[in-house]
Nucleic acid binder design. Structure first.
Lengths: 207, 207, 207, 207
DNA sequence: GTGTAAGCGAGACGGTACGTCATGTCTTGTA
DNA sequence: TACAAGACATGACGTACCGTCTCGCTTACAC
């Protein structure tokens, strides 16, 4: 872990102003022209920066966009970073609906939609980026989800032997897929229906 | 519907030999160099064809790859095309496992893995391609799935009010996501677990 | 002369309408877009003719333009073709000035300027075309000039041993060069000065 | 004169090696395949240079060829550039014959014939190139010619009122035309005959 | 304090691929 | 069988970016 950045340049001399300008430019341009037409040259021009400054610090345009997201989320978290957790009122179904409804609102925000989709697509093609995503962005969130589900297990709301990864996929997967593939509108009603169906299963339950 | 191709060139004069060479080249090259490095120039060179012949008939390299798949599946279907259906032994769970296990085997086939993933990625970025995919490739398969689930409803294995689209997502989504995002190995055991979890739901069922 | 068109198709079946449409289109397009941007495709489209019809009968776009000129001059000559001759009033200097002034007027006609220049340029690059030009267009005119000069020789206005080809070059060359290379305006005064200078020579003549 | 190159890129960063490679390649290729088949792609390939490097510094292939000539002549001039002058022995006729014979020898050199003709043809079609040619290549030479003729005027060998531009055309025009249009062989005898005819005029002179 | 060695904006460089255009040949269907 | 139409393989066009490189400039750190 300590020697991982052998070839990277000296980070202490890095220009914070350039870094922020690049991330901002990348984020905005992705929203304006789409990820496919996003270019390093374009980012550099918009940011008023030499191309080499980008190549010096990032291996690909996907990595730049990734860092742009990272900066965004870190900026939003504020001071009390560690304390984030999913709501836990004791009612798993209600809590999941709350969370999914919030996700729906976020995904419907036009400012984030295009760059977020671009990042998700890029991850499919770049394993290194996927690893970074899994570790830095998706990982922490997934841990929160697991914690909430584990609590539900202890409360008896979920069975002991449940595959939590699969459970998460059942609850959050359909929403993400519908968003990523634009298969239909993202609504609170849809969020609710997912939660109910996932919890109860497809099979009829005895009354 | 009849006049939709006003500006397209005369299809009757089209060279079938060139068309097949292009589709074959596109499919093979995607497997060899990956979709990102696939180029129209490369396809044309490999196919022994002028670039213009590709631009004349396809709007994008994604469209070429799409047609390559279409040709593949149509070639495979052979004569008895209409009779395709999902297995129906009366045991929904067993049948779904059979189908998902077959899908697992297909997705593990290295020949199709890379091009198929490329096509799926491209669809995320090209709405026109997505529409074609939904209509020509995914649509028919989805109809088979719905039919099977409807049969199960009539047999009382599934409730009347079930959202079939969501149900399909619950069953097939996790497998597709794991494959697309390379989140883990695709095994028969995983296929079975998905089916069981989706059918029973996350919540404990009374014994 | 008899075997020169070995590979050409049967001329008797040729469509006169297509031929004229092609020549007209070529001439007009040269005036409109310039010779450099003139294309066989463009001529065919403007003439409402298949490309093959042009390739069947002409070896190059220069040849088409050449024929367009030929058609033009032949159309203008009318019936009494053989009777053309340069004016001969017995005063060589006056006659040459008359002829050169007429040439000046022709070269200043904007309709012919661009196509004529194009043809002259093309001739520099295509020996076959140059030969055709020398034989069909320039040759007859040069014969007229020589005849007039020979008459002057017999009248004692020019010395017996004069190189007539060089003499023609002295008289007509400067005008043609000034036009071809756009070195200056073509005026009657310039025409007169050429004739005087060529006849008298650069050296002072005794009074 | 100071602000004429507003949009041109920074000349100080220019690669001299690339520039020379391009000019050499252009000159050689013109000799090998002819100007018509000369292509920017071909020059770039032969020079081991990206196409953009050519487009960055030259507006057309004609301009490249022009610079190739410029480099050639500038290389040949050596140190004492300003001192060049046409011979002046006091005998105008002899001096002009000397100069024209030298020109004949130069035009007969097969290394320069094709590229030089190509440049001359291109000038007919490109006014910008023509202006550059007039200023940089033809202009200085023309000044030398005028100077020699002016000296002859002062010595009484030529009349005061003579149009020097026209006189130059009379002497050098026929040779240039015969070369450019390949109308016949370029010989010393022909050079001599031109000078004699131009000086004495077509009309007979009293003995 | 003053090198000296980074990072920086700038942009030229050798390349690859783009999407368009025209070439000259070949094929199809009409008259 | 000549023709209009137009698909075809070929190849150059001029553009956009790629990722690398070199320029001066500025901005620390080390001596």
């Amino acid at each position: 872990m300590t020697t991982e950045r052998r070839k990277s340049p000296d980070t202490t001399r890095r220009s914070e102003a350039s870094r922020r300008a690049i991330l901002t430019a990348a984020f905005e341009l992705t929203g304006e022209v789409g990820y496919a037409k996003l270019s390093i040259e374009g980012i550099a021009a918009r940011a008023g920066v030499g191309k080499q400054t980008i190549y010096r610090w990032w291996p690909s345009k996907g990595a730049v966009l990734f860092d742009a997201f990272l900066a965004l989320t870190e900026g939003a978290e504020g001071a009390g970073e560690q304390e984030a957790a999913l709501p836990d009122t004791g009612d798993l179904e209600a809590d999941l609906k709350t969370v999914l409804r919030a996700t729906v609102d976020e995904l419907n925000d036009p400012r984030y939609d295009e760059p977020m989709r671009a990042l998700n697509v890029e991850i499919l093609q770049d394993p290194a980026l996927a690893a970074a995503y899994a570790e830095r962005l998706d990982g922490p969130m997934k841990e929160l989800k697991k914690t909430r589900l584990r609590n539900a297990q202890q409360a008896g709301e979920l069975p002991e032997g449940l595959d939590l990864d699969l459970a998460i996929e059942m609850v959050w997967g359909p929403l993400r897929t519908r968003w990523l593939e634009r298969r239909g509108p993202l609504t609170h009603a849809y969020a609710d229906r997912i939660v109910e169906t996932a919890l109860n299963g497809l099979r009829p339950r005895p009354a």
